[in-house]
């Protein structure tokens, strides 16, 4: 759920996603469900964390959403063909938990702002 990932610096990145007609989060009204926007933010975060780990010579491990806070959705939600633009900021990081703040827009209109924590597995964690 990320077509383009653009690294800015360790604490900032941007991403894009054009909603495909067969996106699994499309609802009956033809719009992406709010959960889909959150998944896009989670995958943007995962791409950023993975990119930094790689640059630091660490292996990329699986990541999970730990929590979501202060999420505000502003309708209308995007439809198939719309392109989402996400700006992500790393707010803080402790060990393998990263707190990010994200803003997702469609045509310069903000549709989602939220904070999210991503927990990455430690290298060599038992699967």
């Amino acid at each position: 759920m990320v077509d383009g990932y653009f690294f800015e610096d360790d604490l900032h990145c941007r991403s894009e996603l054009t909603v495909a007609a067969d996106n699994m989060f499309l609802g009956e009204g033809g719009c992406v469900a709010e959960e889909g926007l959150l998944e896009h933010v989670a995958q943007t975060s995962a791409a950023h964390i993975g990119h930094i780990r790689k640059m630091e010579g660490q292996s990329v491990t699986l990541g999970y959403i730990g929590d979501i806070k202060r999420a505000v959705f502003t309708p209308p939600m995007p439809a198939a063909g719309d392109t989402l633009h996400t700006k992500l900021t790393v707010v803080s990081q402790v060990g393998n938990v990263t707190l990010v703040s994200a803003e997702t827009s469609v045509d310069a209109r903000v549709v989602l702002t939220c904070r999210m924590k991503l927990a990455n597995e430690n290298e060599g964690d038992a699967r």
Binding site: A33, E35, L38, D67, K69, R70, V72, C114
Partner: peptide
């Protein structure tokens, strides 16, 4: 996010109408 979608559907079942998230204070 799918667990979250499942909860939304259960709230819809309980209230009898289609719903969308307007905000999440914490999850």
């Amino acid at each position: 996010v799918l667990t979250l979608g499942m909860i939304r559907e259960c709230v819809e079942l309980r209230t009898g109408r289609a719903l969308r998230f307007s905000s999440i204070k914490s999850c």
